[in-house]
Simulated scan of single mutants.
Amino acid sequence: MSGRHDAAECFSRRLQRLQEVIYPADLGRPYTEREIAEAVGMSVSQISNLRNGRSVPRADRAVALATLFGVRVEYFFLPGEDRYTRDVERHLRAIEQERRGEPVGHRDRAAGGSAAADTELFDDDQVRQIAEGVAVLPHDMRETVHALVDQLRRAVGRPHKSRERKPW
């Protein structure tokens, strides 16, 4: 399996999970693909391709989807055992419990915390930590992640900083 396929499959699972759980109370139901597409400026077929694991979105569209569902964009790509991913899943389960009328320990209805608080995205140390985690991925998947990071930097107006290579 190629790294791009793995990334598309992970993105698909996470997008489907968010769509099942995160939706406005006034709708009383999950977003349709058309509603998602209109909210993030994509076509219905593009959303369908994402949901079915046939593609991975451009960085700006991944950010728009993350913002729509109230998560940080990395939720779509981090491994399941990552702390942030586990936190989002815990919040999603709490929302599901609340809808079933079961007691919930907190009332935070956002899946991953405030998206507005994350507008700064990552500082260079956080990017470096992610990159170190990426090093264990297959080559194709590393290329996808590197391209995503570059697109994210351009989307927020932060040019890529080239670092001096150490001689050792």
Rank of each mutant, 00 (worst) to 15 (best):
L121H: 14
V71Q: 08
V145C: 10
V149N: 03
K166S: 12
R61T: 01
A39H: 03
L50Q: 01
P57L: 07
Y31M: 10
R83S: 13
D124H: 11
H146E: 12
E102I: 07
I130D: 02
P57V: 06
L68K: 01
R14M: 06
R100Y: 00
A66V: 02
L68W: 04
K161L: 13
N49Y: 12
R154W: 06
Q19L: 09
S55E: 01
E132R: 15
E98N: 09
L65E: 03
P138A: 09
R34V: 10
V73S: 14
A7W: 01
L65Y: 05
A25W: 03
D108N: 14
S12K: 07
T32W: 07
A37W: 04
Q151R: 14
R86D: 00
G157C: 05
R163K: 13
Q129N: 08
L121M: 13
F76H: 02
E35W: 08
F69Y: 15
T144F: 10
H5E: 14
P138T: 05
G112L: 06
H139V: 12
A135F: 03
P24L: 13
E35I: 08
T67F: 00
R14P: 04
P30S: 11
R154T: 13
Q97P: 00
V156M: 12
E143I: 11
V56H: 02
L92C: 05
R109W: 04
V56P: 00
T32Q: 06
V104H: 09
R165A: 14
A66C: 03
L152A: 05
S48E: 10
R107W: 08
D82V: 01
G112K: 03
S55M: 06
S114C: 12
L18D: 01
G80E: 15
V63I: 15
L148G: 03
